[in-house]
Nucleic acid binder design. Structure first.
Length: 812
RNA sequence: GCCGAAGUGGCGGAAUGGCAGACGCGGCGGACUCAAAAUCCGCUGUCCUUACGGGCGUGAGGGUUCAAGUCCCUCCUUCGGCACCA
């Protein structure tokens, strides 16, 4: 038997598809809107290492789905491109002097070739790369829209700084106090930054999660990241001073238990209110706190520190004078940067109060406890942060936590010293990078007009050539060293002005690339509105979970801004999201160069073929779960394809398949249809393997059955299917064939086995026609001699019959 | 600490509350071959039994049910995310 010649077949059909533009997507109005699908992969960053076996996992899944949709009469948009700005190319440039553009282009060429070698049905005419000036012109244009809408502003507040990458980082890019990219401990630095006001969209980013079909955990991660909480803001008067301190609390019901206050060391009031005698100590503390990284302030030192400012505040509910402290356990960037401390009911305050011997007053008692009944109690022995019943709270005693919150908020409002308030953990997006290889931020600084956006007609602001790519570390990018580029005229007044030298983060380009695919060559708009209306939103978006709160949050934000400006037709960009599970190394560990467990897809394609690689990756297990690679297991997929090839060498018969085989065919069509639809590719492949094992036993193959089978296989192993299609005399491309249909009546077996159990234990099986009446099943079961053995001498208490499924006899 | 996901043969995994282990890998036995590779056929959870057959089995322990891998409670382990957010 001839070995299946994948190394000839695969390039042959790839060339055919390319030449025939088989997968070109056209905005054909004859497809009604519900017959259009936009299926998108997260585009790759073209690293120097080339494609990884993890990349083709998602790409294969979307490709199978797209091919399935086309066969079912859908017009499908399935593009690919490259996220091409970013640090690796720049760092390589710093080491070698090679321009990042050169490295990036070479890597893109390699990636494109590797992706093409897997036979995906991509419309390559729509390819984009975020580093192309024609592309980033529109990234800059969107930034200008953000600026004009007041959503981009400059700030010199302290930021996360990676000393190794020598650039500022967004909150989302810091993981466990380390730079997400390089693992270096993040420090704090005060430099001028561009910030995007993503917090202005916090409520909508939260609310609109309800309308999209995303994995539950990604939704939860975004919800947690946005971190909405409801509570109250309360203004505290200071004893003998005109200033007031406003705090935010989610537990206004514990106000009677506030025994001290804490300001963040950076709080603007600290310097003003600190008394003369406390000044030296307070200054020293503020200075020490400023020197600490966020990590040192949080993770490394859970041990509370702090100093008293010398000032007392007045608790508005009881007039008690309480000390105002400063401590770095209060974050300047959340709420008002100040808290009322209720040590009896907050773990952190408890710890602080114990350490500094501050009073602790219990004001919440557990439901049903003696204290809850009496309304008062002595000093608590432990912190209780749950909900309960108010005690030691004057007229409010006896109220439940929820009722008390409402009552006290109303009271505060009436007194004019507080109101209901909502807070978010989400911070604004630090958007400037002090690096070279990114989109220049299209702003000009004029001494007269301030920060002025570049005129839209003057976009793009091209990334200039530099002699040194190395980041300066001073808060300026390498662009600052090119006076002829930096010095320009103010777009507003024409006077001398300087260009912004910071660049955008890598996330900028990926915030809207799915829109550029719709109209990639358009010189007049990021995409024509009719094309947006034709395809958007993205119906299925497949990619890794690592972007749960980075790219996916940022892109949603930009999309909403574009929606508000009337440029796009949907509130959300990605209707349905699926995260493919990671492919681990053979050792069950994350694949990495340092572990030496990386599998190169090129090797697999060379040795087993692209179709085998595709089928194996989909057969390994459910798309969404992590699973270890096993090259040994790959041969199973390979043998399946070999078997199909072997079948194609048998003669075709015009006779119909026998009844048994015909039923199997129809059941297989049903199973593969349902499973492909629901992205359960592993079980679809399993079903096709079962059919192939049966067909392989035949001496000649019924033509109709074979035609259907080849069409079923086509989304999974497209090269082989094209070849099989051609060998059986099919015209054109098998990918233009309609998906086979099945007859539900033929999906039912002529005879089925119905298990019979006694007291839940399987004891016999009945062979009956499907649909046999329950009464008859019961009679047959009770008549069985095997069953009689188990019921002998016992009393039949009950017989449960589920038609076509089982019979259970309960005996005593 | 909090939130989320997952624990099933030697391995990857399958199973609308209804025959646990489909399909594949590996292993064992056989056919073909001078021989090997490839291919094909059979067996392959575990324990007891020569066999027929039976007991036990889905991380641990409880519970609901005629019936639980699947539902509920407690716990353990692994992975992912968050982590002084008041």
């Amino acid at each position: 038997m001839a070995k299946y010649p994948f190394s000839e077949i695969e390039p042959k059909w790839q060339a055919y598809w390319e030449k025939e533009k088989t997968f070109k997507a056209v905005e054909d109005p004859s497809f009604p809107p519900d017959k259009r699908r936009y299926v998108l992969d997260m585009f790759p960053y073209p690293s120097g290492a080339g494609l990884h076996v993890g990349h083709p996992e998602g790409y294969t899944a979307t490709d199978i789905y797209c091919r399935y949709l086309r066969a079912n009469g859908y017009n499908v948009l399935h593009p690919m491109g490259f996220d091409a700005f970013g640090l690796p190319a720049e760092n390589y440039a710093i080491q070698t002097g090679t321009h990042p553009k050169i490295t990036t282009d070479a890597n893109i060429a390699r990636f494109r070739e590797q992706i093409k070698s897997l036979g995906f049905s991509i419309d390559w005419d729509r390819e984009v790369a975020t580093c192309d000036a024609d592309y980033y012109k529109w990234t800059q244009w969107i930034f200008v829209q953000l600026f004009k809408k007041g959503l981009a502003y400059e700030s010199d507040a302290p930021i996360n700084w990676c000393p190794s990458c020598k650039t500022g980082l967004a909150n989302e890019e810091v993981k466990d106090g380390e730079c997400d990219r390089c693992g270096t401990k993040v420090t704090r630095k005060r430099i001028r930054q561009w910030i995007l006001k993503i917090t202005a969209y916090a409520d909508r980013l939260l609310a609109d999660l309800d309308g999209i079909q995303w994995p539950e955990d990604v939704g939860i991660m975004q919800r947690n990241w946005i971190g909405r909480s409801e509570g109250a803001s309360v203004r505290f008067a200071l004893d003998g001073r005109p200033e007031t301190v406003e705090v935010y609390t989610t537990r206004p019901d514990t106000l009677f238990g506030a025994t001290y206050m804490v300001l963040a060391p950076e709080h603007p009031l600290v310097a003003a209110i600190t008394t003369q005698d406390r000044k030296a100590e307070v200054d020293a503390y503020v200075e020490a706190a400023a020197a600490k990284s966020d990590l040192e302030r949080t993770e490394l030192s859970k041990d509370k520190t702090g100093v008293w400012t010398g000032v007392l505040a007045i608790n508005p509910v009881n007039g008690r004078k309480i000390p105002v402290w400063i401590s770095d356990y209060v974050l300047a960037s959340y709420g008002t940067g100040a808290i009322m401390a209720v040590p009896a009911h907050d773990e952190r305050d408890w710890e602080f109060a114990v350490k500094f011997r501050l009073p602790i007053i219990q004001v919440v008692a557990e439901e049903g406890s003696p204290a809850a009944r009496v309304g008062t109690c002595g000093d608590p022995e432990a912190c209780f942060s749950g909900e309960g019943v108010a005690v030691n709270s004057g007229e409010f005693n006896g109220l439940s936590t929820a009722d008390f919150k409402k009552a006290i908020t109303a009271w505060l409002e009436k007194q004019g010293i507080g109101k209901a308030a909502v807070n978010y953990k989400l911070r604004d997006w630090l958007f400037s990078r002090q690096r070279y290889w990114g989109e220049p931020i299209p702003v000009v600084h004029c001494s007269k007009c301030g920060a002025v956006p570049v005129d839209e007609k003057d976009l793009p602001v091209r990334l200039p050539e530099v002699t040194s790519y190395a980041p300066t570390g001073t808060g300026e990018s390498p662009l600052a060293n090119i006076p002829e580029w930096v010095n320009t005229a103010c777009p507003k007044c024409g006077g001398p002005a300087k260009r912004e030298t910071n660049t955008m983060p890598q996330w900028a380009g990926s915030c809207w690339y799915y829109l550029r695919y719709l109209d990639p060559k358009n010189p007049d708009a990021f995409a024509a509105r009719d094309k947006i209306d034709y395809w958007m939103p993205v119906n299925l978006y497949v990619g890794g979970k690592e972007h749960a709160v980075l790219h996916l949050l940022y892109a949603r934000f930009w999309h909403k801004v574009l929606f508000d400006l009337g440029f796009v037709n949907t509130k959300e960009p990605f209707q349905r999201l699926v995260n493919q599970g990671m492919i681990l190394g053979e050792d069950n560990q994350k694949m990495s160069k340092s572990r030496g467990n990386v599998v190169n897809p090129d090797d697999i394609v060379r040795e087993f073929g692209a179709d085998a690689m595709r089928v194996y990756e989909m057969f390994m297990g459910p798309l969404v779960v992590a699973k270890p690679w096993a090259t040994a297991g790959l041969v199973g997929a390979s043998r399946f394809l070999e078997r199909l090839w072997a079948v194609s060498e048998k003669p075709l018969a015009d006779a119909k398949p026998d009844a048994e085989l015909e039923r199997l065919l129809h059941k297989t069509i049903r199973k593969v249809s349902e499973d492909t639809e629901s992205l359960a590719f592993n079980t679809a492949i399993s079903a096709m393997m079962v059919l192939s094992n049966e067909v392989a036993k035949l001496d000649s193959v019924p033509r109709g059955l074979w035609r259907d089978f080849v069409t079923l296989v086509a989304p999974y192993a497209p090269h082989l299917a094209e070849e099989l299609w051609q060998r059986m005399g099919g015209k054109g491309s098998v990918s233009k064939q309609a998906w086979p249909s099945y007859d539900p009546a033929l999906c039912v077996d002529a005879e089925i086995e119905v298990p019979v159990s006694v007291n839940g234990k399987l004891r016999d099986k009945l062979v009956v026609a499907p649909g046999t009446a329950e009464k008859e099943l019961e009679t047959l079961a009770l008549a069985s001699p095997k069953i009689a053995e188990w019921t002998a001498g016992k009393q039949v208490a009950k017989v449960i019959v589920v038609k076509d499924r089982m019979v259970n006899i309960v005996v005593k």
